[in-house]
């Protein structure tokens, strides 16, 4: 499946079907993350059940603490 992540078209592995799995794929599942799917921000509680489809546009921002 091909989706647009942070503005870039990317091919994601076949076993990544949901937003949670996508976060896991990028190593962001333990972080505090804001995810926007097709211009809508997802509630954290919905990451697990939200399915991705071909052509989706995802923006991900994760919080870090250093400074």
């Amino acid at each position: 499946m091909e989706i647009v992540i942070n503005g870039e078209k990317l091919e994601i592995p076949i076993d990544v079907a949901t937003v949670s799995e996508l976060l896991q794929h990028y190593g962001l599942n333990q972080k505090v993350v804001i995810v926007e799917l097709n211009n809508e921000i997802l509630e954290k509680g919905n990451h697990q059940e939200t399915l991705l489809s071909n052509g989706d546009r995802v923006e991900m921002v994760h919080f870090v603490g250093g400074g």
């Binding site: 942070n6 503005g7 870039e8 804001i34 926007e36 921000i41 923006e59 921002v61």
Partner: peptide, 8 residues
């Protein structure tokens, strides 16, 4: 080379 911005 990544950039992201979300309207919150």
């Amino acid at each position: 080379n990544e950039h992201s911005a979300i309207r919150v």
